[in-house]
Design a protein around this nucleic acid. Structure first.
Lengths: 186, 186
DNA sequence: GGTATGTATGTAATATCATAACACGTCAAG
DNA sequence: CTTGACGTGTTATGATATTACATACATACC
C-alpha cells in the first residue's frame, strides 16, 4: 500500500527511489510514495538501536511502524488501540512506554500542540526539528530548524538562560489546504 | 506583598518604578519587585478591553490577577481552586473560559509543554512570544521571539507552508538554577 | 543447565487536563 | 417589559497521562 503525504490521498504516488519527499522540506507536504521512507526510517532505527545497545522489542518496533505508516501525528490512545487489536497489552502504559522509548532514541517526536506523536523521518541526524502543523488537514511536517534554534539560543542567552531542548511548532496551512479548503473546512 | 521573579523569593526587591525586570529579557529571571509589573499589565489589559468593546468581568479580572500574582505558569485547576476558594464557580469551565478569553485578548499565554497558563507581561504589543521554561524551578520567562519567528517563517515558506501562529518553548535552566541546584534538584 | 540481575511488558487503579451541553442570571436595546 | 446576547454556574463526560505493582523475558555469570 502506498501511503501519501497528502492527507486526502489525492494525487498519484511518486515512487522516486530516493524519496526526497520525506526528507526535503520543500516536498514534505507533496504527495509521494511513502513506503520506503518508512522502511528506510525503520531500518535506520534498527541499526541505531543495535549500535547503542538498546533493544528494539516487538512492541516498540510495532509502534514505530504504526507511526511510520500513519504518516501523521497519532495520539497515544490511537496507537494503543492498534496495539491492543494486535494482541499487545491494552493499557495506556504499554503505548506510553514505547512512545517514550522511541522519543528518547530520536525515532519519534511528540507534538505538544496535538498531544500526539509522529515518526521521525531522519533518525540519527542532528535533532532539532520544527513542526509545521496544518490546522485544516492535521498533516505534520518537519522543517529544518537549525536557524530557528540558533535564533532562539541567542534570545535565551540574553537572559542567561541555558536552552537544553526546544519545541518549535507552527500552526497554519499546508500548501494543499491553501489552495483547496483553505478556510479550515477540509 | 512583593513578588519576586526569583522563585525562591531570595534576594531583595527592586522597586524600580520602570520595572525593567518584567519586560527586559536580560532581567526576566532576575529578582525584582513585581507588584507594579502586575498592576501595570492589569491596567493595560483593562484599557485594551474597553477599547475593544469586550468585557473585563470579575472572574476574568480575578483570573488575570491570579496569573499576574503567581508570576509563573499555573494549571487551569490551580486557577480554578483559587477561584473556588473566593466564591466563584468551582467547575473547570469557569477557569477555562476565563483563560481562553484572556488568551484571545493577548493577556495570557498557554504553555503547551506544561499544560499551564501564564500572564502576558506586555499585553497589546506585537505578539510573538518565545518561552524559556526552567526545568528545575519551573519559572517561565518570555523572550523576544521576532528573530526566531522570522527564521521559522523562512523555513516554513520553503515548504509552501503558511504559518499563522507558532509556539516556541525552550526547556533548560534559568540563571539561578545554573548556579544553585543546577542538576535539577531544586 | 541454573540462577541472579536488569529490563521490558501486562494490568489495575487513579490522576490530570479539557470540553459538551444545558440552565440561569444580567444587562442593554428596542 | 420582552427579547437577545453574553457571561456564569453546574452536571456529566471525555481525553490524556502516570503510579504502582506483578509477571515475563533476556543476558551474564557460576
Amino acid at each position: 500500500m502506498a501511503h501519501l503525504h497528502d492527507p486526502a490521498n489525492a494525487g498519484p504516488a511518486n515512487p522516486d527511489p530516493a524519496c526526497p519527499g520525506c526528507a526535503a522540506p520543500d516536498l514534505a507536504f507533496a504527495p509521494h510514495d511513502h513506503d520506503h521512507c518508512a522502511a528506510d526510517a525503520l531500518a535506520r532505527a534498527e541499526a541505531l538501536v543495535a549500535e547503542r545497545g538498546a533493544r528494539m522489542t516487538p512492541v516498540r518496533r510495532r509502534v514505530l511502524e504504526i507511526l511510520l505508516e500513519a504518516h501523521r501525528a497519532l495520539g497515544a490512545y490511537d496507537v494503543l488501540n492498534r496495539l491492543a487489536a494486535e494482541g499487545f497489552g491494552n493499557q495506556p502504559p504499554v503505548a506510553y512506554r514505547a512512545l517514550d522509548f522511541l522519543e528518547e532514541q530520536g525515532f519519534a517526536h511528540r507534538i505538544q500542540r496535538l498531544n500526539a506523536f509522529t515518526a521521525c523521518m531522519h533518525p540519527g541526524e542532528a535533532h532539532a526539528p520544527a513542526f509545521l502543523i496544518c490546522r485544516s488537514c492535521n498533516a505534520v511536517a518537519e522543517a529544518p530548524a537549525a536557524p530557528v534554534l540558533a535564533a532562539l539560543d541567542r534570545a535565551a542567552t540574553g537572559s542567561g538562560f541555558a536552552v537544553e531542548r526546544a519545541s518549535i511548532e507552527a500552526l497554519g496551512l499546508c500548501p494543499g489546504c491553501q489552495r483547496g479548503g483553505a478556510g479550515g473546512s477540509a
